[in-house]
């Protein structure tokens, strides 16, 4: 077991966690409560933190899902985010392994990979739009998956490269001596050991794509309408539908929460050298 920490540290820790929780969760709670308000209640002074209990209803949720194409939005965003995350982490892990273990292309090549992520999206959006129009893939799931990969593949490569470099190389060497192929060593030794890194990379590429707005707005029309585009359309007219936007926010946060709850045991389990010895 771990050694007990000094008492003063435990008290300070508790206080800091409480303060952090209030700071990070207040806006989330505000969004949740706003999603049950009427348009009038949003602009009252003093502000209404919690709408009266008897008025709570799901009107805003029904409105967003049924009338404002929210269901389609959730479906499209899920397809795009899940596929982008899967592709980014898979090809990212392969590339990261090559960069970390074979030093493929040296430092310059690694740098080129991360540099593709540095270009301002505002500037790359128009040329990309033109190519995708030429390829006739605008307004499909693939166009967003490809466009989002520009930012997410370099992210996954670099994150995972760090994790692989921290692993002792001896384990893979042992596997190779026992006759495994390089891919076999990668698959059976390296990947299981960098599970926390893989999960972290998956979570963030998923969330980055889930929340992406500019490409989604530019490159989709009718067949595909990601949630962020649906939400922005709620502020398009003369009035901003604050409560519906909040309801949409609560809906869009759900898959991320599920991903964290489902995957976080892999992060928490972590890996220890001690476990490797067995």
């Amino acid at each position: 077991m771990r050694k007990k920490k000094p008492l003063y540290l435990r008290i300070i820790m508790g206080v800091i966690l409480m303060v952090a929780l209030i700071f990070f969760l207040f806006p989330v709670m505000w969004m949740f409560l706003t999603s049950f308000k009427t348009q009038d209640q949003i602009f009252s002074t003093p502000p209404i933190l919690i709408p009266p209990a008897e008025q709570w209803n799901l009107d805003n949720y029904v409105a967003i899902l049924r009338d404002n194409k929210g269901l389609q939005g959730v479906r499209d965003t899920t397809i795009v985010a899940f596929t982008t995350a899967l592709i980014s982490v898979s090809i990212g892990a392969l590339a990261a392994y090559s960069l970390a273990r074979f030093r493929f292309g040296g430092d310059e090549f690694s740098f080129w990979i991360i540099s593709t992520r540095m270009f301002p999206p505002v500037a790359s959006a128009i040329p990309l739009f033109l190519i995708f129009r030429q390829l006739e893939i605008l307004d499909t799931h693939w166009v967003l998956i490809i466009a989002n990969s520009v930012f997410n593949v370099p992210f996954a490569v670099w994150l995972l490269k760090g994790f692989i470099e921290d692993l002792p190389v001896e384990l893979e060497e042992a596997a190779l001596i026992e006759g495994a192929t390089v891919f076999g060593a990668f698959w059976r030794i390296t990947l299981p050991l960098i599970t926390p890194g893989l999960v972290t990379a998956f979570l963030f590429t998923f969330v980055f794509t889930w929340n992406e707005f500019m490409f989604a707005l530019l490159m989709t029309r009718r067949a595909v309408r990601p949630m962020t585009v649906v939400i922005s359309s709620l502020a398009g007219g003369h009035t901003i539908l604050w409560a519906q936007i909040a309801a949409a926010g609560v809906i869009t946060i759900m898959p991320g929460v599920l991903v964290v709850i489902f995957l976080q045991r892999y992060i928490v389990r972590g890996l220890t050298m001690g476990a490797l010895k067995n």
């Binding site: 969760l25 939400i231 604050w242 709850i261």
Partner: peptide
């Protein structure tokens, strides 16, 4: 704790901007 503290990252800027 972890799930709660990760919530801000999961809210799209489009949504949190309006909040």
């Amino acid at each position: 704790w972890l799930t709660a503290l990760l919530l801000p990252v999961m809210i799209a800027p489009v949504v949190s901007g309006f909040q």
